[in-house]
């Protein structure tokens, strides 16, 4: 453990902690933009600077490790001015269309601009204009809103292992894109979307469905593969408008394309909405629950009487819940009277 003081408070933290980690651990908030706790430090945005006694210039707290006896101040007039300047510069080249931006309400940049009262008009100058839109069906990439924090590049490499995107060009023209500025063609896990601090990366399916006003969050388990990721359905009215995952879930907030973008089947127009009975003509006809279930029960009873319970079978589903599966086999065994019950575990 290493002892140091942050804002005159004595703290003690594990040896290789960064100043930022030391501060966070002790409930001291330092503003950040490019830093992400699940990714390796980058040190690009300079928003997290702090002053350290004995050092000539402020240092980036997300990349500087603590040392014994260090004296750190996270907020001085000089530092706050510097942060304001950083934000001014970022916003001077930002579309500022928070009105229609998907990220409003969950945007780190917006929050910081609000907290520092920065409008970005001080240095307004040339703007990056990127007319081309990415044609992939999953992820909206609005690079005019990109603040070049590099989180997406890191998550794609470090977590997803795909390296689909990278920094290209230099200086003012610097930009994040797939090689040759092609359309994104990757695993579409959306990890990059989940770590982007601005509205530069959003889900195409989310567009204008609902931001944070009136949106409920429901934690549940992904309906697709056996990994069983915990996901959060964002619901407005009776519609899922977005899916995300929390970093403290067992899957650490990471999802795949199916979990993150595969929820749209829920309100597909193809959903069955009424019980159906096949008529003699061969056509299905809508009916009531009572009629459908009585008809079904009558058939089962008739076959059981004529041929015994073993002439009936039940196939259940790995997609149904434990409770449903338990009850299904109980129904087949105790209600019908046969062990002819299986599911597709082996398939």
């Amino acid at each position: 453990m290493v002892s140091l003081t942050i804002n005159n408070k004595k703290v003690s933290v594990p040896e290789d902690s960064t100043i930022l980690e030391a501060a966070n651990r002790n409930g001291i908030k330092v503003p950040t933009l490019c830093h992400h706790p699940q990714l390796t430090p980058f040190g690009g945005c300079r928003l997290c600077v702090v002053s350290v006694k004995g050092m000539p210039k402020p240092v980036a707290s997300c990349t500087t490790t603590v040392s014994e006896g260090m004296e750190v101040a996270t907020s001085t007039p000089e530092i706050e001015n510097f942060r304001k300047l950083v934000l001014e510069l970022i916003l001077s080249d930002h579309p500022n269309d928070c009105m229609t931006c998907e990220a409003t309400g969950s945007c780190a940049l917006q929050e910081l601009a609000y907290a520092y009262g920065v409008k970005g008009q001080e240095y307004a100058g040339e703007r990056r204009v990127y007319a081309k839109r990415d044609g992939n069906p999953f992820i909206e990439r609005d690079m005019e809103k990109c603040i070049l924090c590099g989180r997406c590049v890191k998550v794609c490499d470090e977590v997803q292992g795909v390296e689909a995107i990278d920094f290209t060009y230099r200086g003012f023209r610097s930009k994040i894109c797939p090689s040759y500025e092609d359309d994104l063609d990757c695993e579409f896990c959306g990890q990059c979307v989940s770590v982007c601090p601005t509205g530069a990366l959003t889900g195409k399916q989310w567009a204008r469905k609902g931001r944070y006003e009136g949106v409920r969050e429901v934690d549940t388990t992904c309906p697709y593969c056996g990994t069983g990721c915990t996901l959060t359905a964002h619901v407005k009215g009776n519609e899922i408008v977005r899916v995300s995952s929390k970093p403290w879930s067992p899957n650490e907030g990471w999802l795949c394309v199916k979990g993150r973008f595969g929820y749209k089947f829920v309100n597909s127009p193809d959903r069955l909405t009424k019980p159906l009975i096949r008529r003699a003509s061969g056509e299905f006809e809508e009916t009531s629950w009572t009629a459908a279930l009585e008809y079904t029960a009558a058939w089962f009873k008739k076959i059981r009487e004529q041929h015994g319970a073993d002439a009936i079978g039940g196939l259940s589903s790995a997609r149904c819940t434990n409770e449903e599966n338990y009850l299904f086999q109980k129904f087949i065994r105790a209600g019908v009277g046969t062990n002819n019950v299986d599911h597709c575990a082996r398939l």
Partner: peptide
């Protein structure tokens, strides 16, 4: 599949 384990545990 998401609940193959559960469907087996539940004895389908």
């Amino acid at each position: 599949q998401n609940n193959v384990q559960g469907a087996s545990d539940a004895a389908c």
